[in-house]
């Protein structure tokens, strides 16, 4: 119960804060350009407010239902860590180019998921498997995209 109230109310507050913050950015825009974003931001702010009011009313009537499944555990393991992997990959992408970063990402995600799904330690066998998978997928992508199609891929600053 507490959790439902919290997520919805926190979300409402975040929306109101976001709309106020973004609204201050519209100050230097010419009025013609600022009109549409302002309407949208008013809308976001009002939605946030209504969300809080609605939740409180529902709680009072004892009708609140839980539609959120966000927990600290799932936030860390399903959002924060995978997100961090991708952001690191993005950094690698700007430095080393696409294929090396792809290779890295495949390995890391493979190990992480093997660990998460089966809750087992990563042994030499898994390491070898991950290595093979990464090499294989990267090679296939290289053949299709670079050799066959001649598509450009991010090259990275390192090789300039």
């Amino acid at each position: 119960m507490v959790i439902i109230i919290l997520t919805n109310i926190i979300m409402g507050v975040v929306l109101i804060l976001f709309s106020i913050l973004a609204y201050t950015q519209t100050g230097d825009m010419p009025s013609q350009s600022a009109m549409f974003p302002r309407i949208v931001l008013y809308g976001i702010g009002i939605t946030g407010l209504l969300m809080i009011v609605d939740t409180l009313i529902k709680v009072k009537r004892g009708k609140a239902t839980n539609d959120s499944s966000l927990t600290l555990n799932s936030f860390i393991f399903q959002i924060l860590i995978p997100g961090a992997f991708l952001l690191i990959t993005y950094q690698l992408l700007t430095i080393f180019g696409f294929y090396i970063s792809a290779f890295f990402l495949i390995m890391v995600v493979f190990f992480y998921q093997t660990y998460r799904a089966n809750n087992i330690k990563i042994t030499g066998k898994h390491f070898l498997k991950g290595l093979i998978v990464a090499v294989l997928i990267t090679a296939i992508m290289y053949i299709i995209f670079t050799l066959l199609l001649g598509l450009p891929v991010p090259s990275g600053s390192f090789f300039r």
Partner: peptide
């Protein structure tokens, strides 16, 4: 375990 990394790298490529 195989699908997730494959889709991820293809998606990054697609975005580019």
């Amino acid at each position: 375990e195989y699908i997730v990394p494959t889709v991820l790298v293809f998606a990054l490529f697609g975005a580019y």
